[in-house]
């Protein structure tokens, strides 16, 4: 049940995931586990090592920007690491996406991605801009709980066709600054372009987000940024009331997201142009 690596797969077919670490990042181990369980091999690499040798990113088939409290979330959540990425490896990250590498950025990763010019985009006419914000929760404090979510029809390759019932379509959140905020024009663009990838159930929104938006993707559907933590929902025993046997035959939706991304990589690398 736990070791989901199929013995059928060989090392050569395991895409490589690079999971970034940085001072204060603390969800890197479980994010690496998620990639591994989904069939990738995962390597954790410090942003300072990437800054010193940006070429390391060239070997990535998948990229994870984990949660945590990068640089203590000083000023605002994710701000300082976002600024530092912009002056170091942002081109390498964008370049990876340009060559089709899926990227996931849960929680602090999402906060960083929106301020580093990775989401939402695109910005064809000029430099990347910050167009969305993740503000202090409506309740004014950090909260850890599971919430019911929906996966609207979207471009996102991570959440395509995720289905389930009320009991299983849940995700854990744990944040103090997760209230999604953007101007009306940006919101309507995201909605109309199928860029809203995860939404809190209207009656289970933990932070007062505009449009109950929990996660968005970029124009290519490859980058998913979201406040919930799918990497904490890889095993049914992580479900908040799994002892009531709310188990189905499939993998939990958290793991399914990673499987979709790994499948995407395998399909695209199997059919060279």
């Amino acid at each position: 049940m736990y070791d989901c690596r199929s013995t059928m797969e060989t090392m050569s077919t395991r895409p490589k995931a690079i999971v970034l670490t940085a001072p204060g990042i603390n969800c890197d181990l479980e994010l690496a586990e998620a990639f591994e369980l989904a069939g990738a091999s995962a390597e954790r690499v410090h942003v300072n090592a990437l800054a010193a040798d940006p070429g390391l990113l060239d070997s990535a088939d998948l990229i994870g920007l984990p949660g945590g409290f990068s640089y203590g979330d000083a000023i605002a959540a994710g701000r300082i690491l976002a600024v530092m990425l912009q002056s170091t490896i942002i081109d390498g990250l964008r370049g990876a996406v340009d060559r089709g590498v899926p990227m996931i950025a849960p929680c602090n990763g999402f906060q960083i991605a929106t301020q580093a010019g990775l989401l939402p985009g695109p910005w064809p006419d000029g430099p990347a801009r910050t167009e969305t914000a993740l503000l202090e929760n409506d309740g004014g404090r950090f909260v850890d709980r599971w919430v019911r979510v929906e996966y609207p029809a979207s471009k996102c390759i991570w959440t395509q066709d995720l289905t389930g019932d009320d009991a299983t379509m849940v995700l854990p959140i744990a944040h103090g600054e997760g209230r999604f905020h953007a101007e009306a024009s940006v919101l309507s663009r995201l909605e109309s372009e199928g860029r809203v990838a995860v939404r809190y159930a209207a009656d289970d929104d933990p932070n007062g987000s505009r449009g109950h938006i929990a996660g968005i993707c970029d124009d290519t559907g490859l980058i998913l940024g979201l406040m919930p933590h799918p990497e904490r929902y890889l095993h049914w025993t992580q479900h908040p009331y799994w002892t009531r046997r709310v188990v189905c035959a499939e993998d939990p939706p958290g793991l399914q997201m990673f499987r979709r991304a790994v499948q995407h990589v395998l399909q695209h690398s199997a059919a060279p142009a």
Binding site: N26, C27, L29, E30, E33, G67, R141, F142, V143, D144, P172, A174, H229, E231, R232, L234, Q238
Partner: peptide
Amino acid sequence: QYDHEVQG
């Protein structure tokens, strides 16, 4: 108020 699930 505590993150009781980090590390998964």
